[in-house]
Structure formats: structure tokens, C-alpha cells
Design a protein around this nucleic acid. Structure first.
Lengths: 233, 233
DNA sequence: ATAATAGTGTCTATTAGACAATATCCT
DNA sequence: AGGATATTGTCTAATAGACACTATTAT
């Protein structure tokens, strides 16, 4: 307890569970490892937190997460929702050395997803269907992290802004419902779901947006978040 | 990206927000710092994660939290509820060196609280009323951690096991209601609250316990969690 | 007897959910 | 015209909340 700078320290990393919606499917971005350990296996994108020397203490934890997010996706900072999941720090989770990872989940709006450099590139990054993927195929303890992320997203879907971060600026009720359905993994009644959304309009959370969404049949109205608070009461 | 063991690393600590209920009041355990920085100020109990050398990677993150909890309270492991809050890692949060802290909250059952070595001891530990305490009086960024802990406990009070961890094994409905009231900071209707609890009996979550709770007037029935699942359906 | 708290009853409003029916637009 | 989806309507059950009332015990 005397000289705290003398004790051995763990490396600290940030790992990201980056979700998006594509083809009415919940997907996440994975990276193929090109070196041992777990060479050839898929992992969550991530990296080490930059820690300075002496006076400079380095970057904030959240800045590290945002930096990795920008590096891995190529998307501008602030354009993607980012929230901390928690710290994962079992001994031995990285066989090389002691690493404590702070995990985050990110939500990429579907219209941005095509700009993410993933796919045929040499980047080694690709989108995977969350439903089809076996978490245990991931390297390190990333299965545990992924499961926690899915549980968290499902749990907060009803209360928080999660669904709205996975839908375009202006969205139809059916599009929002599709996000709910694919995350929860169950069909929702269109009529009942519509009522829930309409109630948010009464509450001043949403408003009608200009334009309509062309579908296979009758076009649907589109909605968006209200920008300025309605200044009620 | 080549030799990951070469980069500077942060120190990693665990900090604890240890709650209990005493005198119908939500309290938390604080420690008075006996050295700079922040000498004489109060802080959340905590300590550094033990990281080994070479083969030995040291203790799990959760083990570190449980160890600190046992050390600071003197209570046996496993007797106190412990849950992770998240990682706090702003640069400069500890002026001495870069420290990333993983915060946890703990819930001490009221009948155990008297055994915690706090009070007149030389330990420098004491219980503080959560309502009366000004979080900004705490050292480091512990105000932020405390606020997050309070928000989390309030948010999960309705859904999770939190309230039941702050009440004796066998508890009256009024005692459980008092926990809700002191955490939420508002009065709850006794009749309506009772119905909520009774519904949990229908659901097989609670059952009547032997004995009664003596009050200033009419004694109250006491309840407890069911041990064996009711094996229904 | 009285105070105090346990416990019950009742009424209203809100919400979720199942499900049917109608409206509107594309092809 | 026919198919598909948006949109509306209706009914039931569950729940929260306000509030009045009764029952039981300590003093």
C-alpha cells in the first residue's frame, strides 16, 4: 500500500459489440484474427487503452472506445451510439498476459452500415447475423461479452433509445417494429405496436416527418424524433 | 501492435458502494483517507486488483471486489450481494497515476450491518446516510460513481432482487415497503404495495414465514423467499 | 377507550394483447 | 381485380393508483 506505482499492472483493452440492422436482421461486426493466439478465429473489434507516461495520463476510457469504434468502422465520431456494457476481467481470459477488458456496445444506423469497410476488403472485418452466429465460436471470452450485450439490448429495448438508433432518421412504424421483432426474436401485433408508437406522439417524443415510405403496397407515414422540446405546461 | 506487453499500463482498482438499511435510512460505508491526496476526505472503499507475474495472472476481477468487500466489512464472503456497476476511467481521476476503476455495489442485510467494523473504531470507516450526504464531498470521482450506483439501485428496485437483499430473512410487508420508500424517496400507498407483494405469493416467489413481527400496534405477518421451486406445470 | 398499524374493498384510468375489420395503394 | 400492408376498431385482462373502510393489537 505504500508505493502504488510499483505493483504489476494488467493491460486494459476496450472491446466493442457493434450492431446494425441489415436485410431485416440484427448483425454485428467481427474481425478475423491474423495471428496467434486464436489465429483465424473471429473476435470482437477492440484495442488497448492508450496510457501516457508521467504527467500525461492518456485518453479517457470512453475516448478509447470511441476511437476504436471510428477506426474499425471508418464512420465519423458521434454518428454512432455507444454505451458501456461493463468490465470483463477473469484471469486467463487472454492467454498471453493479464488483460482486463471494458466492453461497449454500439448501434450503427442502417443507412450508415454500407459505408463501414467490411466485406470483401482485406480489412478482415465482416458483418455476422446475431441469430445465426454461435457465440462460442468467438475467441477469448467474447462469447460471454456478446451474450451480455444481447441480453442488455433486449432488456433496454423497451425503455431506452436503442430501437431508434437502429432505424433511419425518418422511419415508418413498420420499420421500427421490424427492429423490435428481430431483436426480440418474436412477431409483434402490428395494431398493438402502432398504438404504442402513437402514444409517443401524444407524449411529444415523436412527430410526423415529411414524405412517405414506399412499400410493396400502401405507403406508410414516417416519423422522427422531435428536435426542440415542446415547451409544454 | 507488435509487442503488447511493452506499452504503459494503467493501474486497475475496484471501488465499492456498500449500502445497507439502518434506522429506516439508506446508508453507505465510507473510509476516511489518512494520506494525500485528498487526505482527510471520505472515499468509497476499494483497492487495487492483484495481478500476478508471468504464468500467474492474479485474481479475477470479481474476486478482487469480493475480497475488498470482505476486508472492508469483516463479513464472510457470500453473505453480501455484489453486482458490477461499470468501469470508470477518465484520465486524471487519480492525480497520482492513471487508475481505471471498476465499481461495484453491495447490499448488506440490516441484521449484518451491526457486525461491520465501522463507527468509533480506528478503522476510519463509517456509515453515512445516502440522503444527507453530498456526493461532491467525496474524493476522486467518487461522486460520479455514487450517483451512478444510486440511479442503478433505484432503476432496478422494481425488477430485481435488490429490495430483498436489504431486508431480513423473514420480513413484514411494511419492512419491505420501508426499503422501497427510503430508496425511492417517496411514500407508497400501503394497500397498493401490499397487493404487489401478495401477487408475488401467487406467483410462488414468496411464501409466508413462521412468526410475526411485533410493531407498535397490530403484529404483522412475515414472509420469505421460497427455497425450492414450486415445480408447477 | 384510543391510537396505530395491519389488512380489505372499491373505483378509475392506463396499458398490453388478441383479434377482426376496413382503407389505401401497387401491380 | 387482387394482393399486401397500413390503419382503425373492439373486446378482455392485468395493473397502478387514489382512497375509504374494517380488523386487531398495544397501551
Amino acid at each position: 500500500m505504500t508505493d502504488i506505482s510499483r505493483y504489476p499492472r494488467p493491460a486494459v483493452a476496450v472491446d466493442l459489440v457493434i450492431f446494425t440492422i441489415q436485410d431485416a436482421d440484427l448483425r454485428l461486426l467481427l474481425i478475423e484474427r491474423d495471428r496467434p493466439p486464436f489465429k483465424g478465429r473471429w473476435t470482437l473489434p477492440g484495442g488497448f487503452v492508450r496510457v501516457g507516461q508521467g504527467e500525461d495520463q492518456g485518453e479517457d476510457l470512453e475516448v478509447a472506445a470511441a476511437r476504436e469504434l471510428a477506426e474499425e468502422t471508418g464512420l465519423p465520431r458521434g454518428s454512432v451510439y455507444l454505451e458501456q456494457l461493463g468490465a470483463f476481467g477473469k484471469a486467463g481470459r487472454d492467454p498471453r498476459l493479464r488483460v482486463i477488458s471494458v466492453a461497449w456496445f454500439a448501434l450503427v444506423k442502417p443507412e450508415l452500415a454500407p459505408f463501414v469497410r467490411a466485406g470483401g476488403d482485406a480489412s478482415g472485418a465482416a458483418w455476422f447475423s446475431a441469430a445465426a452466429l454461435d457465440p462460442d465460436a468467438l475467441a477469448f471470452d467474447h462469447a460471454e461479452i456478446l451474450r451480455a450485450a444481447l441480453a442488455r439490448v433486449r432488456r433496454e429495448l423497451h425503455r431506452g433509445p436503442i430501437a431508434f438508433e437502429l432505424v433511419p432518421e425518418a422511419f415508418s412504424i413498420a420499420e421500427l417494429r421490424a427492429v423490435f421483432e428481430v431483436i426480440l426474436g418474436e412477431r409483434l401485433d402490428p395494431g398493438n405496436f402502432r398504438r404504442r408508437v402513437l402514444r409517443m406522439i401524444d407524449d411529444g417524443v415523436l412527430e410526423q416527418a415529411p414524405g412517405k415510405r414506399i412499400t410493396a403496397s400502401k405507403p406508410a407515414r414516417v416519423y422522427r424524433f422531435v428536435r426542440e422540446p415542446a415547451g409544454g405546461a
